[in-house]
Each structure stands twice: as C-alpha cells, then as structure tokens.
Design a protein around this nucleic acid. Sequence first.
DNA 1: GTCTATACAAAGATAGAC
DNA 2: GTCTATCTTTGTATAGAC
Lengths: 193, 193
Amino acid sequence: MTKGRTDTAVKIMDVAQELIQSCGYNAISFNHIAERVGIRKPSIIHHFPNKEALGQAVVRRYREVFAAVLEKVAEAPDKTAIDAFDLYCTPYLEFGGTPDKICLCGALAGEFMALPENVRAEVARFFREHIIWLEGILRRGVESGDFAFKGDPAIKAKLILDALQGALIVKRATGDTDQVTQVVAALRDSITG
Amino acid sequence: MTKGRTDTAVKIMDVAQELIQSCGYNAISFNHIAERVGIRKPSIIHHFPNKEALGQAVVRRYREVFAAVLEKVAEAPDKTAIDAFDLYCTPYLEFGGTPDKICLCGALAGEFMALPENVRAEVARFFREHIIWLEGILRRGVESGDFAFKGDPAIKAKLILDALQGALIVKRATGDTDQVTQVVAALRDSITG
DNA sequence: GTCTATACAAAGATAGAC
DNA sequence: GTCTATCTTTGTATAGAC
C-alpha cells in the first residue's frame, strides 16, 4: 500500500516525523522540514496542502504501521503472549536508546490542546488501539499461564502504556539512559509473576 | 518567600502555567497570556524580560512548591509511607479530573528539545527530585512494613513517576476519565502488597 | 506599571514562472 | 515538481509617552 505517495512526499513525512518526535508539533515549521529534505518551503505544499494535513498523514502512517505489526504478532500462532509483550516494547527501547526521540504520539500528547482536530483524533486512536491490544495480550497470557498478575487486565494494559510513554519523556529530560530498560524489565516482571 | 513579585507578575505566571499545562510552551504567546491577564502584550516584558525567563520562573515555582510539600510530608513524624504516597498522587488525580490539564513538567517534557536551556534544566530537576523522593518513601515503607513489593525501590520509583506522567497525557488524549484513578489504584496495590 | 506604536523575524500559505 | 516572489498574520521584543 503505497497510497500513491512520491519519494519526496515520503521523505517529507520521514523528516517531519523525526522533528516532531524531537521537538513537538508547534515548534517545527515548513522551513525546518524543507531544509532537511533539501527542498524549498513552498515545495512541501505541493505534496501536502497545509501543516495540519502533513501532521495528520504522519501520525496516521505511524499508527497504521504500528497497528499492522501488532495485529500480525497477535495472530501469529507460534508467538506466545510473552513474545508479543517483548515485541511491543521494542520501539520504546529503541527510542529510549536515542538522546532526543520519544514516541511520536507521546510527543504530540504533551501539546494535545494545541493540535489541529484531525491530528488529535489520530493520536487518541493510537492510544486506544494500543490499550485494547495490550489488554488482549494480557488476557491471552493469563489463559496460557504465561502471565500471572493481580488486578484487571484492562487496567494493567493502561498502566503498561502509561509507564512506557512516561518513561520516554522522563528519560529524555533527565538523561537517565537506563530508565526505559529498567521500567520495561519491571513491567515484564510484574506480569510474568 | 514572595521574591518581591507584584500581584500582576504572579497573575502572569498563573496564566502562563495554565496555558502551558493545556497547550505546551511553543504554542502559547505573550498575546494569549496578556489577553487572559487583562493587560497588553508589552506589559508582560516589564515583569519578565523575555519568554524564556517567564517560562523558567513558572517551572521553577512549580518545582519549588511541589518540593516544599514533599519535604514537609517526608519529615512529618505522624505520616506513614502510605500517607506520603497518597499525598503524592493528589495533584495527578486533580489534573486527571480536568479535561485539558496535565502536569506542567509532563507537558514541557513532550517538546523538550525545543525548550530554552534554562527551562529544560528546571524540568529535568523536577523529575530527578521526584524520583529521589519517591525512592525514599518506598524504602521507608518497606522498612516500616507498610510496603511490600519485589524489585529495586529506585526502579519502582521511576516506574511510579513514569506511569503517573503517562497516565495524564494518555488520559487527556483518549478522554478516558477513569484512567488516572485506575492507574493510581493499581500502583498503590503494587506497592502495598 | 501600563499603554500605543513600531521594529523585525518567522510563520503558514498563494501565485505564477520554469 | 520545484522554484522565486509575495502576502498576511503572528510572534518576540523595544522605544517612549503617560
């Protein structure tokens, strides 16, 4: 599914995503993006009619790529619930390994009330999908005996998502390079019993 | 400690803080602040030389007020570790009860790389102080028998802070009004054994 | 301490040449 | 598809009157 996007359009989205993950939505501009892509400011408009459309496209792609991976692992018969959990944590560990990047939706959520409506909707949907997916994995793990924990899986799912998102933003601010790894391990322990 | 601030200066800080909690740092302007305070844009400059100075003053006050409360409860001989934990969660529950506000430092952390140096420093210090305080409370609770949990208190402290910060940003985006309450309860259960 | 007026830069966006 | 040139708005900040 290429959505008919040209190479330039994809490159614009890649750069925009990286910049938002570092600096947020309101801090970045067409100029910043154009500079890194190697084109001029108005050329972006040819690919995306305005900033809101670009923002929405970036978050939508991020959400859909994430969702496709999660769906695939949830349906793979050879993957255990533990495998699924570990896989879920992979991007968080990856972002946590950088000095300046957090989850795209975590960055956007910090300035939520200052986002265009369409971008907000994508961010909200991202979080909702992840909570539902996590709850499903937790229930599967409990049934299979891989997981053992107290409390409602639905709430545990929220706790996991919240802790991972929070770990990224706090880690980047404090510079505590081990924080995300430590929190992932603690969460893992808390569900594997 | 009034720091010699006039009523207007305090009002400017109050409004600026609220706006940052809702919209972030880069989305707000002197105009937005001035409008709500009921003065004109350049009048703000009389109280704070520039946006960075205002931002730093706001975060610094927030951090110091928080720190003073935490220090007081940590030193109160009649307060148990559970009391201290519950008190720590109070502001998070309060923000979670609003439709649009999160922790000031959680909001700023989302756009960390786009913040002035001085503001960054205050945000980082806020998180570090909270992790240290939480670790102290956790150790005290373990010693007193109020708390019982597996793992390193230092890491548990990070997990708690991360989960609370994450709960606020995710909750605001999804509109799941119960989320913060649920996560606080789950965290409480996880340390009281 | 607050105002009007203004300077100056940067933002998002458009028009039209190539 | 990309460019230059331009428009309009908004941002931070300053000067100086009151």
